[in-house]
Nucleic acid binder design. Sequence first.
DNA 1: TCATCTCACCTAACACTGTTAAGTATCCGG
DNA 2: CCGGATACTTAACAGTGTTAGGTGAGATGA
Lengths: 206, 206
Amino acid sequence: MGTKERRDRERQETREKILDAAREMFATHGIEATTMRAIADRVEYTAAAIYHHFKDKDALIIEMVHSDFRALGQQFVRFAQVADPVERLRLIGLAYVEFAIEKPHHYTVMFMTRTPYCEPDFDRGNPEQDAYALLLHTVTEGIGQGRFRPELNDAEQLAQMMWASVHGLVSLQIAKCDDPWIHWRDLRATSVLSIDAMIRGIVREE
Amino acid sequence: MGTKERRDRERQETREKILDAAREMFATHGIEATTMRAIADRVEYTAAAIYHHFKDKDALIIEMVHSDFRALGQQFVRFAQVADPVERLRLIGLAYVEFAIEKPHHYTVMFMTRTPYCEPDFDRGNPEQDAYALLLHTVTEGIGQGRFRPELNDAEQLAQMMWASVHGLVSLQIAKCDDPWIHWRDLRATSVLSIDAMIRGIVREE
DNA sequence: TCATCTCACCTAACACTGTTAAGTATCCGG
DNA sequence: CCGGATACTTAACAGTGTTAGGTGAGATGA
């Protein structure tokens, strides 16, 4: 009987429908502002129906966030073929900023709020999915090639420094863009300068 | 009659009592997790009583945040006498990190979440209260002295770069310290390296 | 064909938020 | 001693996430 398969497929479809609606509403209005009832309305169900497909709102969010993490990882994977690790570092930084500009609400949830974690289906350490793994790998390569100053020999630490320098820019602008006292400069332009400065500051001079 | 004064003083005292309770509960459990009723319980009042002293929860939060901003500004003001603007930049960065380590929950509200703004009693631009103003002033001085690379001639932009580099570190650790995959290095140590790298990357080489 | 069962979904409620309208008691000024 | 301001409480409201129990359509097995 193909009916079992059809049932499963239909179930998967409404699951996706809910997920898509949630994704869009989260992205446009933010996570706090979108209620379970509103998501349900959008897909013409009752709020309670969502709980047949997702354990709770957190599960819905986590699933979304993880697909976003995978998307970010796949944004980065195209840089794997860039030979020079320092140049790769630059490109990763710029792509990271671009991602944040495109999906600020998702970025907020991914990197600016504490979220519960630990699900099995996210392939941690696989550079095709895990952006941090690729960053770490790149930095490790740079250290191996002796490209960085001798005191900066801890890959994890160096990765965190580079990550933080771009995260700081985008997250501050996301959080405080309404503050009239701060005259924010163009995020992309500032990022370029910041990444370049950081790289100048960490590379071993000839 | 001193009774008016006494009344005012008593009112001010309970106001402070509420504020203190809120401050402590926000700091230990976070803002979302502390409810108006819980704050009221702590000071042995009813939740509704708080609304006689503060317009709403946001007003309570804002008042807290602003006193925190002032505290941060006063942390920085002691560096005003440091002659060398570049060295001053370093010290400000380190003090900023220290502040974040001391009050992570307050830091979260101050710099990691969008908050409503625009209150009259916060003296924006006064370096004694406004940490950003001091940072901006320091960077401006450095530019005036020709200490930075010629392309980095926008004080606001440069200030944002420096700010972001430390904010990135502390905010990432606050948000993702539970992530078992990331091996966080000591925040103070990483900050020193990061600030030094950033400064190396922005100063004009002789 | 028909009883049964499964499963997707709904209705109605719960406990919990922040918030407010209305009432009460206390204290002060006349 | 009266009237009114003031500080607080009680009780409720609307909104949140969440769940227990019911409903009804479609598949299953005799």
